[in-house]
Amino acid sequence: MMYYYLCASLPALLFGRPAPMSVAEFDELCREELSARDFQLLRQAGLHVSRDPESSGALPPVLAEMVRFEQYLRTRIAQRRAGRDDDRAAALPDPAEYFGMVDFGLAQAAAADPFEREKLIDRIRWSHLDDLECGHDFDFAGLCVYRCKLAILEKYRERKAEQGRENFNRAVERISSAAGAAQE
């Protein structure tokens, strides 16, 4: 089914720019236009996916692809954190597909500070969503991609550099006091 009016009325999303609306606001717009079944499927489009490799089997093609990609990305992140020879890394399920841009992007992100690393990882997601969006300007798949992109932008809505520094400094102080108490 095509959703010309709904899709044409949505503001453009640009990585690194503020989200023009929340995911909840987007859902409200879509609730009025989509069937109940399509709306429930649309709500599955996001950054939180099942770890079960079989979870994408019953989903529409674009959602299934998004789930497999996110599973692959998270598996590769976990393997990097655990170390290649670690038992925890060996226990991770091998993803059904290979996404080369993930491995390349994660190698670049490894040297960045935590906040920049997260942005680089979200850039990997965004790039893949751009690929999935091609040819789906006014259909259900396009709405799913839009919702995922909106979820990425929404993550950064309330983040402020100053608040991050304050949180970091508090964590350092807690660690320093705990280390000092342990030495006494």
Rank of each mutant, 00 (worst) to 15 (best):
M1P: 08
M2K: 13
Y3F: 07
Y3E: 05
Y4E: 06
Y4L: 09
L6M: 03
A8K: 04
A8P: 00
P11K: 03
P11T: 01
L13E: 00
L14G: 03
F15Q: 00
F15A: 00
G16H: 01
G16S: 01
A19G: 01
P20W: 02
M21Q: 02
V23P: 00
L29F: 04
E32A: 15
E33C: 07
E33N: 09
E33L: 05
L34W: 03
L34A: 03
A36T: 10
A36Y: 10
R37A: 13
F39H: 04
F39C: 04
Q40V: 06
A45M: 06
H48T: 15
V49R: 14
S50Y: 08
R51E: 15
R51P: 09
D52C: 10
E54W: 13
S56K: 07
G57L: 12
G57M: 14
P60N: 15
P61Q: 08
V62L: 10
A64V: 04
E65C: 05
M66R: 11
V67H: 11
Q71N: 08
Y72Q: 10
L73A: 05
L73I: 14
L73Y: 04
I77R: 12
R80D: 12
R81G: 15
R81P: 05
A82Y: 14
G83V: 12
G83H: 07
G83I: 14
G83D: 08
D85P: 09
D86W: 07
D87G: 06
D87Y: 14
R88V: 12
R88H: 09
A89K: 07
A91H: 13
P93Q: 11
D94W: 09
D94Q: 12
P95V: 11
A96Y: 08
A96Q: 12
E97D: 15
Y98N: 11
F99P: 04
F99D: 03
F99L: 11
F99H: 09
G100W: 10
M101Q: 14
M101T: 13
F104R: 13
Q108T: 10
A111Q: 13
D113V: 12
P114Q: 10
F115P: 05
R117Y: 08
K119H: 14
K119D: 03
L120D: 07
I121K: 03
D122T: 14
R123E: 06
R123Y: 15
D131G: 15
E133Q: 15
E133C: 12
E133L: 15
C134I: 14
G135S: 14
D137G: 13
D137W: 14
D137I: 04
D137H: 11
F138M: 12
F138D: 05
D139C: 04
F140E: 02
A141D: 04
A141W: 00
A141Q: 03
G142K: 02
L143N: 01
C144L: 04
C144A: 09
V145S: 01
V145C: 02
Y146P: 00
R147V: 01
K149E: 00
L150Q: 02
L150I: 03
I152W: 02
L153S: 01
L153G: 00
E154Y: 02
Y156Q: 02
R157A: 08
E158D: 14
E162W: 15
G164T: 11
R165P: 05
R165D: 13
E166P: 06
N167M: 10
N169Y: 14
N169H: 07
N169G: 06
E173G: 03
R174S: 09
S176E: 15
S177F: 07
S177G: 10
A179T: 06
A179E: 10
A179H: 07
G180Q: 08
G180I: 05
Q183G: 08
